[in-house]
Design a protein around this nucleic acid. Structure first.
Length: 293
DNA sequence: GTTGAGCGC
């Protein structure tokens, strides 16, 4: 090759010619042909090109024009186009095609965007304090301030008294005590947890927190521990949140546990959140049986 | 249908 160039410097290889002067060779090709569009909207374009090897190639492109797309509309759709215009388009010609672009601002927020929860929880500290947060959303619960999850009327916390934080601030006969005792019926209470909390002595209350363990099942697979904490925190001090993770797939197994410092808070959470729709699923919230090891 | 990890004298 090198010697070729040396003896015949003006002669170039095909490949090089095509790269550098390819456009100039187009005159060697037959002209581009356009056929149609026919009655069906089919349009054919026949072109000729040189391929990589320098050979002439015929390229046929078949396209459908918009006319065909219209022709394929249902008869009803076509008929609708002849209807008189109404509304803002009332002054338009019958045959005119008018597309209205809404200027209304519609803000959509993914209610549970991945990773949004922990920061939000950290920043707000408490879901109840999120009420003061600004921002345009479609749905903001006026009771708990949670956005995009439920309306005020569906809020699981809506008729909930302030969560109890300590053991000593609950006078007997208060709304809290009433709610706790009234809600007990129907729900399974493990033997170790039976009996009113008010009757408990100081030593009973110093039980391990695991005793106030609440099992949450039917969680959506993208529910994480911060989400559970956010969901259960309004009922009272939460000592532990756990979401079971499949070791193989590292996906949620759809259940978890929440431990409350106070048993009665756990009971109220069970009463309020069992059967509560969360992420399109109906939660099951019950007392957890002690873990077996 | 659905009930947790890991520690290791």
């Amino acid at each position: 090759m090198a010697t070729q160039f040396a003896t015949q410097p003006s002669k170039q290889r095909w490949a090089e010619m095509e790269e550098e002067d390819g456009e100039d060779l187009d005159f060697l090709l037959p002209p581009k042909q356009v056929i149609g569009p026919d009655v069906n909207g089919i349009k054919k374009v026949i072109e000729y090109k040189f391929n990589e090897d320098g050979n002439k190639v015929k390229i046929t492109t078949t396209t459908r024009t918009r006319k065909l797309a219209n022709a394929r509309l249902s008869k009803q759709a076509v008929e609708r186009r002849s209807w008189p215009k109404f509304g803002d388009a009332v002054h338009e010609d019958v045959g005119s095609r008018l597309t209205m672009v809404s200027t209304e601002e519609i803000l959509l927020e993914r209610p549970r965007a991945p990773g949004s929860k922990p920061e939000e929880a950290k920043a707000a500290g408490d879901p109840l304090s999120q009420m003061s947060k600004g921002g345009a959303v479609l749905m903001v619960c006026r009771t708990c301030g949670k956005k995009g999850d439920h309306w005020t009327s569906r809020c699981p916390y809506k008729d909930l008294a302030q969560p109890s934080e300590t053991y000593t601030d609950k006078p007997p006969g208060s709304e809290l005590a009433t709610a706790a005792s009234g809600a007990t019926k129907g729900a399974y209470v493990p033997p170790g947890m039976r009996g009113g909390a008010a009757e408990r002595t100081g030593s009973d209350m110093r039980r391990r927190n695991d005793e106030n363990s609440v099992r949450v099942t039917n969680l959506s697979e993208d529910t994480r521990e911060p989400d559970l904490l956010e969901l259960f925190r309004p009922f009272g001090a939460v000592s532990r949140v756990y979401v079971a993770i499949d070791q193989k797939t590292s996906m949620s197994r759809g259940f978890g546990f929440v431990n409350f410092v106070n048993r009665e808070d756990a009971q109220r959470a069970i009463n309020k959140l069992n059967g509560y729709g969360y992420d399109n699923l109906i939660l099951r919230v019950e007392w957890a049986t002690p873990r077996t090891n």
